[in-house]
Simulated scan of single mutants.
Amino acid sequence: MKASLLPTILGGILTILIFLLDYLAFNLIEKFLMFAAFVLVPLVILLLNHDEKNKHQRILYKAIKLLYFPAALLALASVMSSKTWTPGSTAISGVLSLGWLLFTLLLCIYGLTVIVNHKGKIEEIAIGAGLVYFFIGGIWFTLYQYQFHMFQINPDKHGLSSVHFHFSSAIVPIFIGMLGRIMTKKSWYPWIVAIDIIGPILIAVGMIFSKPIEYIGVTLFACNIAIYTTYLLAYLRKNSLHNKANFFLVISCIAFYTIVVISLSYPLLKNLFSLTILDFIPIYGSLYAFGFVLCGLIGWVFLKSNVQNSGQHG
């Protein structure tokens, strides 16, 4: 477990430097994308179940474990190129971003193998769909690095779309799938998975073409997370799980509810303290990325490790 977490720890140190060093001149979108590449993705890889008897899946899994850190370094080099090495030029940064794009394609192919190999297991389909969404995030990242104008949209929107797919679209289906692995299946669970798969597409389409569609997608997605966190907290109360897993999963749920409370309180806080939405974006982003997503992933990794160890000892 410690050896498996080493790349994540190294990635975490790099991410802290990226957030703190003004020399790099990364904007908030780029900082969160590097956080996803160096910290979130290696944690997701630890959650994957691969079939040793399935040769193709076994090879894919080994390739993913071997290549994700070099791919993340290429993503970092891509952003550094556009910011500090060759500012104003997109050729080098765009080419370097292809390393991350190809790696997310590997994740996508692996996700498709999970879906195909577990047709009857809806929870594994959710996890597979999350892996597929990483590839869409990789596409948006490359478009952002090339500063490609698509649908007459500012390229910064491509960066936002990439963040959306690296965090919400990919991670939430994986969380729902991990919950499905431990829970007694309910009649509503397939609907949650279906909304989880459709919701990110609605949000992405809405971000480009239509605000009402985006609002519908965000509402459905937020309701899904609310159901997930509520059920998970109830499950943790009734079932004795690994202490570290419990701690991080509870923190993850609390972070989401904190975001909801702040969102509902925004009109009042705005008037009391003369704040704008730009003042709240770093708060929302930090609570979501470091609270809900990171703590949730760490909790599920601890739980999966504990279950595996119990099985080995048993």
Score class of each variant (00 low, 15 high):
49 N>Q: 13
84 T>M: 02
103 F>W: 11
50 H>D: 13
59 I>S: 14
69 F>H: 04
50 H>Q: 14
52 E>I: 06
71 A>H: 05
64 I>N: 09
96 L>W: 00
71 A>L: 04
99 G>Y: 06
98 L>Q: 08
50 H>V: 13
54 N>R: 10
92 I>L: 15
83 K>R: 14
81 S>W: 00
103 F>K: 00
68 Y>K: 08
77 A>N: 08
61 Y>R: 09
78 S>F: 04
79 V>F: 06
99 G>F: 09
97 S>I: 02
84 T>I: 14
68 Y>M: 11
58 R>I: 03
84 T>W: 00
92 I>F: 10
103 F>H: 06
86 T>D: 02
80 M>W: 04
52 E>F: 08
75 A>Y: 02
82 S>I: 00
58 R>A: 15
101 L>V: 02
84 T>Q: 03
88 G>M: 04
75 A>N: 09
85 W>C: 00
92 I>T: 11
70 P>M: 03
61 Y>N: 14
86 T>N: 08
61 Y>G: 04
62 K>N: 15
103 F>L: 11
49 N>V: 07
61 Y>P: 04
53 K>D: 15
63 A>Y: 10
69 F>G: 02
60 L>C: 07
82 S>W: 00
60 L>N: 13
63 A>F: 09
45 I>N: 10
47 L>R: 10
86 T>K: 04
65 K>D: 05
85 W>M: 05
47 L>W: 09
103 F>G: 00
95 V>H: 05
48 L>R: 05
57 Q>L: 12
93 S>F: 01
59 I>D: 13
53 K>L: 12
83 K>S: 05
62 K>W: 14
81 S>P: 00
65 K>P: 03
80 M>D: 00
46 L>H: 14
66 L>I: 12
60 L>F: 14
54 N>C: 11
78 S>I: 03
63 A>D: 11
99 G>I: 07
69 F>S: 06
95 V>E: 08
95 V>N: 08
52 E>R: 11
70 P>S: 01
61 Y>H: 12
73 L>K: 04
45 I>P: 07
59 I>H: 13
48 L>A: 04
79 V>Q: 03
81 S>N: 03
48 L>Q: 12
91 A>D: 07
83 K>F: 00
78 S>T: 01
62 K>P: 05
46 L>V: 07
60 L>Y: 13
68 Y>L: 13
80 M>T: 09
65 K>C: 12
45 I>D: 12
77 A>I: 05
64 I>F: 06
61 Y>C: 03
50 H>G: 05
68 Y>V: 10
97 S>C: 10
74 L>C: 03
81 S>C: 01
103 F>R: 06
51 D>E: 09
97 S>G: 10
59 I>M: 14
71 A>V: 01
99 G>P: 01
79 V>I: 15
66 L>T: 14
67 L>W: 14
74 L>A: 10
91 A>N: 06
47 L>P: 04
61 Y>F: 15
88 G>R: 01
94 G>S: 06
66 L>M: 13
89 S>T: 08
